[in-house]
Design a protein around this nucleic acid. Structure first.
Lengths: 181, 181
DNA sequence: GCCGCAATATACAGACCTGTCTATTTTCTT
DNA sequence: AAGAAAATAGACAGGTCTGTATATTGCGGC
């Protein structure tokens, strides 16, 4: 549900009520509850859908960066900067879901974090392709850097963190490449 | 209010109701509303109190690390690891507040972020003392790294991100020191 | 001893929330 | 065209929330 996504992302998962979404979308309550057993299931479905769209968008940008593995990795940060600059940017819904449902055993918390694990795996692949000495370690580090940049960009409404992270990533990658062999 | 802090941190700012806090603390409603005009003011007061305690605790650890500026900077990450390992660790309340109140104009959002700005300033000082070429840039980067590590440690219930961040910080600091002069 | 302040218990208003139920209308399939 | 499936409107239950009002109790200072 596009409306649900928009409101959840704009205002927060907990604060937005079912009624609000239904009223704005012009959908009856029973229609929703015939597809999803609860608000929680709706949120999980939306998170999973966003996960796929998100990673697809990122990978498109990586592919568009060409064949050079270093450029492909750095394209991630250019993509970040565009995202930060986009209208209505309010941080990462997955980080926010983890924050709103702080119990690690909660289904929403776990679903949200699976997205981050998948992104980290993709980063690790890019690091490996770029010839990093320890792709897993660099992937982990870049993942931390990116999450920090997302939170900071959200709170400060600035795109600067993307460039900071990009510069750091470039330095770390060079370090991991040169000290190899 | 210690009880309010405990519940807010454990379960979330939005989900915990005034009544719950009052019942658990054994305090009457009017007592609360004589001190704070609203739940929002209570949250802001708690955040500001936590900000001071938090930074004091961090700075204690830095002081305990001795005089060597590099060791002092790295002590931040040891402190992080202890924090991640502590009982009931549920991430950073300031990051979570920003996530729960995503509107950057919201007083709670702004109050929470002031804490992060203060921490970054302290980091920048440590970077400068350690002889980094561009202390502001390194402080910014370490800040991103730390925020990412906090979120990741929360979601994965692991202390590993502290060590990843520490190793990265050490590498970046060395880079910033050697390429100086 | 007494005054004044602060905390208390309790009830309440008004709004919101999720999820259920019923009965009707629309839409799709065959 | 007819029957089945899905969407609709709308009321409802039972609970939650914040914030207010009232009337009572405890307690420290002088």
């Amino acid at each position: 549900m596009a409306t649900a996504w928009r409101l959840f992302y704009r205002d927060g998962l907990r604060i937005v009520g079912i009624d609000t979404i239904l009223a704005e979308a012009g959908v009856a309550k029973m229609t929703l509850y015939n597809h999803f057993a609860s608000k929680e299931e709706l949120i999980i479905a939306i998170l999973e859908k966003r996960d796929l769209e998100f990673r697809a968008s990122l990978m498109d940008r990586v592919k568009a960066a060409g064949a050079d593995p270093t450029q492909r990795l750095l394209a991630v940060f250019d993509w970040l900067e565009d995202w930060f600059a986009s209208e209505g940017f309010k941080g990462c819904v997955f980080i926010r879901a983890v924050s709103e449902y702080p119990d690690p055993a909660h289904p929403i918390h776990q679903t949200a974090w699976r997205h981050k694990v998948a992104v980290k795996a993709a980063l690790t692949d890019l690091c490996a392709a770029a010839g990093a000495r320890d792709p897993a370690a660099l992937g982990e580090t870049l993942s931390l850097l990116i999450d920090g940049a997302i939170v900071t960009a959200h709170a400060t409404q600035s795109t600067a963190p993307a460039r900071s992270a990009r510069a750091t990533a470039a330095a770390l990658l060079q370090l991991a490449q040169t000290s190899a062999t």
